[in-house]
C-alpha cells in the first residue's frame, strides 16, 4: 500500500502540471460571456407597442415562418453605435429581416437615434420597462438572437457584432438555416 518514492515525490508536480494546463486554457476566455440557456428553445413570446407607432402591437408572432434576427439595442448604448453600420449593410444587402428590441429607452431618444443613423429594423418593439429583456435573458446591450423559421432561437451573440463575427458565425448559420428552410 505504499507509493514508490518517485511517485510520492513526483505527485505534486503532476497535479501542478494538470492545473497549469487548465489555467492556460482559461486564459483565452472572456469571463464576461455567459452562454444563454435559451439557445435551442422557442423564442419567448412577447407583444409590445411598436416604437414608431405606439398603437400597433408587435411581437414574436411576426417572426414566425422566416429566418430572422432580433437585435436588442438602446440609444444610450455606445457599443450599439459600433455595430450599427453593419446592421445597416445587412438590412440593405442580405435577405434576412432584422427586428429590433429597443431596451429601456425613451421613445424620443430612440427615434432620434434611428432618424439620425438610419433604421435597419423591420420594426422595433419598445421595451420601456425591460420586462421582455428579462424574458429573453438580456444582460448586456447589444445582443443579437438568430431565430429559425419555426421560431426557435439558434444562436445568441453578446456584444456588438463585428465583421468577423458576422462572417464566421452568423452568416454561415443563416445560410445553413436557409437551406433547412428550402428543404421540404
Amino acid at each position: 500500500m505504499r507509493l514508490g518514492p518517485h511517485l510520492r515525490y513526483g505527485l505534486p508536480l503532476l497535479v501542478f502540471a494538470a492545473l497549469a494546463a487548465l489555467l492556460w486554457q482559461g486564459l483565452g476566455r472572456d469571463p464576461r460571456l455567459v452562454p444563454s440557456p435559451l439557445v435551442g428553445k422557442p423564442a419567448p413570446a412577447f407583444s409590445l407597442p411598436s416604437l414608431r407607432e405606439p398603437s400597433r402591437v408587435v411581437g414574436t408572432d411576426d417572426l414566425r415562418g422566416r429566418v430572422a434576427l432580433l437585435n436588442v439595442w438602446a440609444s444610450w448604448c455606445t457599443a450599439c453605435r459600433q455595430e450599427h453600420p453593419l446592421l445597416m449593410r445587412v438590412a440593405r444587402e442580405e435577405k434576412v429581416p432584422i427586428y429590433g428590441l429597443n431596451y429601456k429607452d425613451r421613445r424620443e431618444d430612440a427615434l432620434r437615434w434611428l432618424d439620425g443613423l438610419g433604421d435597419p429594423y423591420v420594426w422595433s418593439a419598445h421595451d420601456l420597462e425591460g420586462r421582455v429583456g428579462i424574458d429573453w435573458g438580456v444582460y448586456g446591450v447589444p445582443e443579437t438572437f438568430v431565430i429559425d423559421r419555426r421560431g426557435v432561437i439558434r444562436y445568441k451573440h453578446i456584444g456588438p457584432i463585428d465583421e468577423r463575427a458576422w462572417r464566421e458565425r452568423i452568416a454561415p448559420l443563416l445560410a445553413e438555416l436557409r437551406r433547412e428552410e428550402a428543404a421540404p
Partner: peptide
C-alpha cells in the same frame, strides 16, 4: 431565473 440566464 435559470430558464432565462442559465446556471450562472
Amino acid at each position: 431565473l435559470v430558464a432565462r440566464y442559465g446556471d450562472f
